[in-house]
Simulated scan of single mutants.
Amino acid sequence: MYIGEVAKRTGLSVKAIRLYEARGLITAPPRQGRYRVYNKSHVEVLLLIVEAKALGATLAELKDALIYNNGTLDWSRVHGFLAEIKNKLLTQQSDILKRIDAIERCISTLDSCPHIQHA
């Protein structure tokens, strides 16, 4: 499929797809005359990039995670990368819950203070 179809399937701009190719995040698709011809695996990797970026991954992190062996993505490395993102998110979740608890304690203290007028 041509780049326009890939853009529709992934929600990425043509410019973004070319950038990811230039940065080595996806393999260079074969050409048919002047046109690049993408396949299903290109779309899968691009969708992975979209999801990883939505989870906060940077292009530099993706570059380290998306390693190709003979043109095939090392999915076990991707698995490890996703596990790292999950662990970071779980740590952030724990930190947020601790902050919420601290705020609740402050609110409780304020609620029990007779000198404060509540809204």
Rank of each mutant, 00 (worst) to 15 (best):
D101E: 15
L62P: 00
E44Y: 07
Y2S: 07
I116K: 14
I107C: 09
P29K: 02
A65V: 02
A54V: 00
K98H: 08
R36A: 02
I17L: 04
V6H: 04
E5H: 08
A28H: 08
L59M: 06
I96N: 08
V45L: 05
G33T: 06
L90P: 04
V43H: 03
L89V: 00
C113V: 08
T91P: 00
G11T: 09
I96V: 12
K15F: 09
G11C: 10
H42Q: 09
D64H: 10
L90Y: 11
K63G: 07
V14A: 08
S76L: 04
M1S: 12
A119T: 10
S108Y: 08
C113P: 07
I49T: 06
I26M: 03
V14I: 15
A60N: 06
L46Y: 01
A28G: 07
R99Q: 14
A102K: 15
R34L: 14
E44K: 11
R77V: 08
D74M: 12
G71P: 12
A57T: 12
A65D: 02
A7T: 00
Y68P: 12
W75T: 13
Y68N: 06
C113R: 14
Q32L: 09
S108E: 10
K15W: 14
E84P: 04
K40F: 02
T27L: 01
F81I: 07
